[in-house]
């Protein structure tokens, strides 16, 4: 009895220490990552000799915020119960959470027989994410940094041009289908497609001045209509909210 309660106390103390270290250093490294990641574009904008007005920057940022602002808040909320506090600081810096980090964590937990949600499981997922990060950094450095830069130098200019011109629809077609399939909300999907089509094919031709805010209008319209017509959808309360596949 006393022996087991001392053991428990030791466990608690060790895990408190772990929580303290990972939240302190997790926060510090994430802030460092944040600063370094915005330093590049800030340098280009202010020291690149490109003559960019601050207003242009804020308008561009506001348009992005109007489209993705909700996701910025919702995504950390949906991943927290799965990741736990320590891995949050890793995951939102490394990225590709749903397609890479979560599977890595789950496989590691299975392989050492740790249950998700337990402390052993939590430690296993932190280590697994470190392993995944190591592989990811190496593959990016080799295949994108070295091989990619070489590819760019040998690809015929015509192909480069086509890539540059059409990569946006090439990405968005697949991303739209992926979003629809992974969200599994037919009603929301129909509303979103209808609203977006109305904005792009009816509103914009009539009022071209709205081009700047068209995505924001589509997002706001879809959110309002999807909420208004939510009906009695099969209550998503049972399963955890489907993590959005963006980060």
């Amino acid at each position: 009895m006393t022996a087991s309660s001392t053991a428990l106390a030791a466990t608690d103390q060790a895990m408190t220490e772990f929580d303290r270290t990972t939240s302190r250093w997790g926060r510090a490294t994430m802030i460092a990552g944040l600063l370094v990641s915005v330093a590049g574009p800030l340098y280009l904008v202010f020291a690149g000799g490109l003559d960019i007005a601050p207003a242009q920057l804020w308008i561009a940022f506001a348009a992005v915020a109007a489209t993705f602002g909700i996701i910025w808040i919702v995504e950390p909320l949906t991943y927290y119960p799965i990741l736990g506090p320590a891995a949050m600081y890793q995951a939102f810096m490394i990225g590709n959470i749903s397609n890479k980090l979560l599977p890595a964590a789950l496989i590691a937990q299975t392989n050492i027989g740790a249950k998700p949600g337990t402390r052993r499981g939590q430690l296993a997922s932190v280590v697994a994410i470190c392993g995944a990060a190591a592989v990811h950094l190496a593959s990016l450095a080799i295949f994108v940094g070295l091989l990619g830069s070489w590819l760019i130098s040998v690809i015929p200019p015509a192909v480069m041009n086509v890539t540059r011109l059409y990569v946006l629809p090439a990405v968005l077609g697949a991303v739209l289908v992926q979003a629809i399939v992974s969200m599994k909300q037919p009603r929301t999907t129909v509303i979103a497609l209808a609203v977006a089509a109305a904005v792009v094919f009816l509103v914009l031709p009539a009022v071209p001045g709205l081009a700047m805010v068209s995505t924001a209008i589509a997002v706001l319209g879809t959110v309002l209509l999807a909420w208004f017509f939510r009906g009695r959808q099969p209550a998503p309360a049972g399963r955890p909210a489907q993590p959005v596949h963006l980060e």
Partner: peptide
């Protein structure tokens, strides 16, 4: 939490596409 993000994402990608 389930409907709003899904609506925002599908709406955004549909409009951009």
């Amino acid at each position: 939490m389930a409907i709003v993000p899904a609506a925002a994402l599908i709406g955004a990608f549909a409009c951009l596409g």
